[in-house]
Amino acid sequence: MLQSLFDGILVGSVLALGAIGLTLIMHILRFANFSHAELLSLGAYFALTFDAVFGAVSNVLVQKLPWLSVTWSLACAVLIAMALTGATAAIIDLLVFRRLRRLAGPLTMVFASFGVSLIVRNVIGLVYGLRSTHYNNDIVFAMMISADPLLLVKADQIFIMCLALVIMVALHLVLTRTSIGYTLLAVSENPTLAQVNGINLGATVRLAWMLGGGLAAIAGFCYALNNQLSPVMGRDLVLSLFAAAIVGGIGSIYGAVLGGLIVGLASSLALIIIPAGYKPAIPFLIILATLYVRPNGLFGQSR
């Protein structure tokens, strides 16, 4: 039970990071972006690449951070990966979605996002190969915090939780204290009114993509650190991300955080009750149950 709680919060915090970007974009641009999950893969692989680059450049960077399996070069690589993934997200918007926003309906955008996700996934497969890989091939052994009830924890996992928490708090401060935050909140609530209040819609949309992409990169890195890198990791995560965003209410950043935790905990705790074979149904059940009780999600507002 304790172990399942811990695992659920861990998976949930990673999902929350991914779902924040998804919910922002879904709300601002009014379409379900199925390619968002691929940004997680992209971020994870960018980090892998730059880890290798930094590692080759300097011996100092190959040192591990205290306690963790993360090297300094990987930590630096994550920062680069965030910037690059954010930029890639903005470029994808420029090349694909921006044109379609003008010319086509939301359904076309959804199909286009499917197409984009296939392209990104296959490009990753082409460049990095189809096999799964790891930042560090040595398996990090878990520490037994308690035997009964069983609780096994890795230092990396504590690190992931702390990182997710720090990023969420930072995001909260940015959104509530800075004018950039106000701009994003305003555009996500009411794009027309935002323009009327002097906000440049195009620039804000770009900002949202970059923010979403950056957060996706972090989420992808955390996921890959705890599990593995694979070209299909985005595909594996997309349903859980959507469940988190929908449960929280499209457009609500705090909802996405709560939704991520709910989905993570439910997937983890459910195995206590149901056989493992039925696990893939859990995100669907959560979506259905939420929509049945609260059609706009927990934090969502009706339109």
Binding site: S179, A186, E189, N190, N197, Q301
Partner: peptide
């Protein structure tokens, strides 16, 4: 209609509008 940002406080609404 929808001429204010409902999710933001009065203060945030005014600061946002004043920024222009």
């Amino acid at each position: 209609i929808e001429n204010i940002f409902r999710s933001m406080t009065v203060e945030q609404n005014l600061i946002l509008a004043g920024r222009r």
